[in-house]
Design a protein around this nucleic acid. Structure first.
Lengths: 332, 332
DNA sequence: ACTATATGGCGACCATTTACGACGTTTCTC
DNA sequence: GAGAAACGTCGTAAATGGTCGCCATATAGT
């Protein structure tokens, strides 16, 4: 592998000059520049990243920590992050936290030990305090899907409460009053926020929240199945179900279809996230759009702005929107 | 940040000794070892990866290049790769090729420039020759989802032809003879292989392949929709459709349901890939299992074995299996 | 001619690995 | 039992391939 030294010899200039044309092009004449470029091309020179990182203390890498890689949720986010960073010649190192505090912390340490310039974190289990402390260290972090008042500037998040509200209000507007709710795990912030929105919509029309029509799932399809079995097991009537994500809806609906029920005539459903499949499942899912890919992109742009000093605008909070399709209908 | 020098001072030993306890612990007495370990703990020492990589010419990173990050397909694969490598304290750098030759090559260059120890490639557009040449360079590569005879040892792939065969044979066994086929893009190897399998199954029972019952899609849901519109537009009868992946099935089925057709009574479908959603879509998809996560894991293990010299067994070729659920039924 | 500025060279780092060799102790051999 | 060989342990110093500040020099502007 050719080194910067070889290039300097071939071009007939000094090491520093070669280094200069690679970095800031300030203070090097166009003629020299071309000579050096030609030499680099001839040698097929490729700068040694490790040496660069060691000398400059900048790795051009950002660590991305997500809860999981499978499932329909994180793919679009990662795709946007990769694209935005890649366009700026930066690379992303991935790590998975599995929604477990110990593993999340371990992953952060791992990423830090790999010398990332910054971290993009989608963490659920770790405490606010931990993140606040982490944000004070020398490597910047940006949080996706989480709001912490003390470090709000580096939080990119969705107004989950509003999303939960929109889902339930939609059903209310369709005449439903007996609305069951299949939630995500209580330990996850977004799950509790969505539930809050649901309760607010209920309260707004004077309907009290009925714990018997509530089931705590884990965001996976199977818990949608479990949730429906549980709800059918209760001796309560309900005409609609809101699920805290689309995956649980799909599990829930499959139970109903197996029982010969018609959706949405016999039971209305509203989901959350608007994952790609929501449009192709039958019936097409009425759901709340979660612009996760935009949030991923914004996290990357945030870094470009704050860490790598690009001059761009970033926004921190995203608003969910209701997407009306065919899984919920007017009561009666 | 504490350096190895600080540790050596505190422990009262030389730099080399500290380095020795970090790497091969050979030739360092237990007493010194403990002193050094204690000093490292006291200082919260964390080795500088860049310096390590520069000096040892090993980055402990592997680049993973996939066609896309969104969609249901690559998540499970990435998850397995990350887990396997992470367990060995290695990290993965991601890049996306978008099924385009120029972008794939650019991504390979990118990954190489980032100093990866090895590359895991799931590339579709790039030529065999390019990959053969690449495999002769100093950084090892392993290919997922692709078979190239000249470098078969580093190929991890699925017997796609067999999968296509199994899908169609299943329908034939159910009495179907007029079987439409919605393919993936002809430029993708797996798509053409699956189609070959389909044709073989047809030929086996003396049914000739009818170009009018063939549609070339692009593996996305929308092209399943397009495909059905096209097929319905032909003046041909058919009683079953095999789609080259599950996403296209889901698009195709949605068209049928909109037309008031019943699946599978009016039309049978067989998919391919067995993506997680195949179980929750209604009807549940009869499909061909594609053990993509196992292939991802195997690629990582291959690297652990060949590059990092672990003593493990790896297998290169995976066999698809038919998963019978409810989207295809006996004719008549 | 004088000064401001553009340009290029020198050399000190950056934090680690590793070849080589020093040194002390053990073991072998005669 | 003495000298030599072998061995285990550890330190020195030379890479590894860059970046960057500082200084000298060439060039241009006034």
């Amino acid at each position: 592998m050719a080194t910067i030294y070889d290039v300097s010899q071939l071009a007939g200039v000094s090491l520093a000059t070669v280094s200069r044309v690679m970095n800031k092009n300030t203070n090097v004449s166009e003629k020299t520049r071309q000579k050096v470029l030609a030499a680099m091309a001839e040698l097929g020179y490729r700068p040694n990243t490790f040496a660069q990182s060691l000398a400059s203390n900048c790795s051009n890498s950002v660590g991305v920590l997500v809860s999981q890689l499978d499932g329909p949720y994180y793919g679009p986010m990662m795709a946007e992050i990769e694209a935005a960073l890649r366009a700026d010649n930066r690379h992303v190192i991935i790590a998975v936290g599995h929604s477990d505090a110990a593993q999340e912390i371990d992953s952060v340490e791992f990423l830090l030990s790999k010398g990332c310039d910054a971290l993009i974190l989608d963490v659920e289990a770790v405490s606010d305090d931990y993140l606040i402390k982490l944000s004070q260290s020398s490597t910047p972090i940006v949080l996706i899907n989480r709001y912490i008042a003390e470090i709000s500037d580096c939080c990119i998040y969705l107004n989950n409460e509003l999303g939960g509200y929109l889902a339930t209000r939609h059903l209310i507007e369709l005449g439903h009053r007996d609305i069951a709710y299949i939630s995500g795990p209580a330990k996850k912030h977004d799950a509790t926020e969505r539930l809050e929105g649901h309760k607010r919509a209920l309260a707004e029309v004077g309907v009290s929240f009925d714990p018997a029509l509530f089931f705590e799932g884990d965001y996976k399809e199977d818990s949608g199945v479990e949730g429906m079995h549980y709800l059918f097991g209760q001796d309560k009537t309900f005409t609609a179900v809101v699920c805290a994500n689309d995956q649980m809806v799909s599990g829930a609906i499959s139970v109903c279809l197996e029982r010969g029920m018609r959706i949405p005539q016999d039971l209305s459903f509203v989901g959350y996230d608007n994952i790609p499949f929501a449009r192709y499942v039958s019936p097409k899912l009425t759901t709340v759009n979660n612009p996760i890919h935009e949030m991923g992109k914004m996290a990357a742009l945030w870094l470009l702005k704050h860490l790598y000093k690009h001059d761009i605008e970033v926004e921190n909070v995203f608003e969910p929107e209701l997407v009306v399709r065919n899984s919920a209908t007017r009561l009666g």
